[in-house]
Simulated assay, not measured.
Amino acid sequence: MDVTFSTEQRDLQQVLRDVLAREDDAQLWKRLTAELGLAGISVPEEVGGAGGSTIELGIVVGELGRVLAPVPFLQTMVAGTVLARSAAGRDTGLLPDLADGRLVGGLASPGTTPPVAARTDEGLRIDGVLDHVVDGPRLDVVLTPVTVDGTAVLAAVRRDADRAETTTLPTLDQSRPLARIALHGAQATEVGDAADVARAHDLLLAAVAVESAAAARSCLDMTVEHLKVRVQFGAPIGSFQALQHRCADLAVLVEAATSTAWYALWAVGSDDEPRGGSVTAPLAKVYAAQAFRRVAGEMIQLHGGIGFTWEHPAHRYFKRATSTGLLFGGRSWARGLVSERAGLGLWATGPRDRSSDRASSR
């Protein structure tokens, strides 16, 4: 694995930072999709994308996560990438519209119980509830695993389809809306098999890990800058050894989360690691989300009184970190999945003894 960005990848990162520094939220989606064409960054050129790899996808996700950009980019890019890698997904006609941002797509959370579907002459008919769908109120197309005759397949359903009902849910993080989508015999299209279901979830979890690590680094950078300029007792508080030690510990944590997240994303997208991503993706999501929450909490504390105010962005990062830890399958679910895929047999994916959760959080 090459851990350095190429010149082109560094240029992409810098362009994104320039755009995010000056563009307001209302125009950001149009700027990123219609003008820069980033929604299809990892979709092959022959189906309307830019032909990049999951590394380019990670660069975009990381930069948007760094500023908590309130756009459904993570979901749309992952959905497009998943469809592009699936033989059935390429034939749906959705890819060109997803790649240029005319359609907003996303995945249902992997921790939910898959709905049941039946095959008909027109495709699939789905019955079930998709709960806590990230960016659900914004999505045009939702990809979800469904069970057909006891077999898992990946299906695409239009959110505005007949017999599909969307309910916007209250959420701690206002920059990332959630929805419950009830499907009562809604028409859907089969876009992948069981392998595509697993690949979709792995890519989503790895991308969330990269996003969380980038947001954690942003929290640390803002905190260090504050410690350099905040003066107490005639000196910048960053010169106090106790605070330096706390920041050093956070820096080590952020570096570990970043390395773990990027390795997982590389493994999911690499032909050289066909099984590596299945274990590292859920592991990276849990680790990066936990690191993000710790750094965001320390950011509030180390900023002092201003860190607790509504005007300072610290609370936005803490909300995102807290919600991310619970979304896309929580910690216990992810650990159970890692155990199952690694053949360890240590945890079940269902409810566990709460004492083990308390011990693991110390």
Results as ranks from 00 to 15, higher is better:
8 E>S: 15
8 E>H: 13
9 Q>T: 12
9 Q>L: 00
11 D>C: 06
12 L>M: 12
15 V>F: 01
17 R>A: 14
18 D>F: 09
19 V>A: 07
19 V>N: 05
19 V>I: 11
19 V>H: 11
20 L>G: 10
20 L>M: 08
21 A>L: 04
24 D>I: 01
26 A>M: 03
26 A>H: 13
30 K>M: 08
31 R>E: 15
31 R>Q: 15
32 L>Q: 09
32 L>N: 08
34 A>D: 15
35 E>M: 07
35 E>V: 07
35 E>H: 15
38 L>A: 00
39 A>V: 05
40 G>H: 13
42 S>I: 00
43 V>E: 04
44 P>G: 11
45 E>Y: 06
48 G>F: 13
48 G>H: 12
50 A>Y: 11
50 A>P: 02
51 G>T: 11
55 I>T: 15
55 I>R: 14
57 L>H: 10
58 G>Y: 04
60 V>Q: 06
61 V>L: 10
61 V>M: 04
62 G>L: 12
63 E>W: 02
65 G>C: 10
65 G>N: 05
65 G>D: 02
65 G>Y: 00
68 L>W: 06
68 L>Q: 12
70 P>L: 08
71 V>D: 04
71 V>L: 04
72 P>S: 11
73 F>P: 02
73 F>W: 14
74 L>H: 10
75 Q>A: 14
76 T>E: 01
77 M>D: 00
78 V>D: 06
78 V>T: 15
79 A>N: 01
79 A>C: 06
80 G>M: 05
80 G>C: 02
81 T>Q: 03
83 L>I: 00
83 L>F: 09
83 L>P: 03
84 A>M: 03
87 A>F: 00
87 A>Q: 10
88 A>S: 13
90 R>C: 04
91 D>C: 01
92 T>R: 03
93 G>K: 09
93 G>L: 10
94 L>P: 04
95 L>G: 07
96 P>S: 03
